[in-house]
Design a protein around this nucleic acid. Sequence first.
DNA 1: TTAGCCCTTGACGTATGCGTCAGGTAACGC
DNA 2: GCGTTACCTGACGCATACGTCAAGGGCTAA
Lengths: 139, 139
Amino acid sequence: MGETGRLRLSEAAEQLQGIQEVADSLGITTRTLRFYEDRGLIEPRRVGTQRIYSKRETARMQLILRGKRLGFSLRDIQEFLDLYDADPQHLEQMRALAGRCRERIEELEAQKAALEQTVKELATIEREALARVKGTEKS
Amino acid sequence: MGETGRLRLSEAAEQLQGIQEVADSLGITTRTLRFYEDRGLIEPRRVGTQRIYSKRETARMQLILRGKRLGFSLRDIQEFLDLYDADPQHLEQMRALAGRCRERIEELEAQKAALEQTVKELATIEREALARVKGTEKS
DNA sequence: TTAGCCCTTGACGTATGCGTCAGGTAACGC
DNA sequence: GCGTTACCTGACGCATACGTCAAGGGCTAA
């Protein structure tokens, strides 16, 4: 017994993990976990100097990572989490988050529209280029 | 006469502009123009040490800025331009560019989908939160 | 000639998000 | 006690995309 071999976490140890385990299970590095802690995004407890991650922290980490996947900066994410903590009912936090999401969606849609426009232009230019090529070959 | 007051560009001066004019007309800073030159994206001619931007350069700059708006990195843009220069017929360049555009579009669509999913989740959570609030008020 | 303006080239500063040592501690097995 | 392992805290490095001096050159007007 002793999955980790470290941190003899007497019982209920399933909930409490060391940094390496958490990093592995999240698919990130320990550096990232420490970095986020430095930025105040998470606050794992300590046993001496060692970090102990509870479910709360790993859940927060999943939120953070999702935020990142969605293209938010750590600063943005930090604001969400601050609201989340400051607002036990999560109402303001929900509204703010929903608002930011809509903004992001609009940004993405604008970019997508611009890209699609560009793709159309490219198609046109490509056709013209091909036409020129054929013309050139004949000459 | 003498729009610019600098660079007495005898005639046909409308085509040739100084760095500040170009920056102003593109809505960027001179620093940016010099930076892009440093990165090999543009190569304005010189009159002595001063940079002279022809239509070719300003046209390139517009391409570059569009690329940026579309979310490409300067490195990506540089590749496009290199291809553009290396391929007078622009055929390979067209294909490559079109491909990259499609990739970007897919990225954006994936992000958009993820965001929309999140928005849905948020809406659900918000509803539940509201319900809890009401329940709390009653109790 | 001198002031004033625009231009030039370094080169360091900034924000973001970590990677990558370096140097040190604590607990384990033998 | 010793070696190994996992952990810790700095702290510098890196890429991106410029901002921001600093120091100097050249041209024009007065």
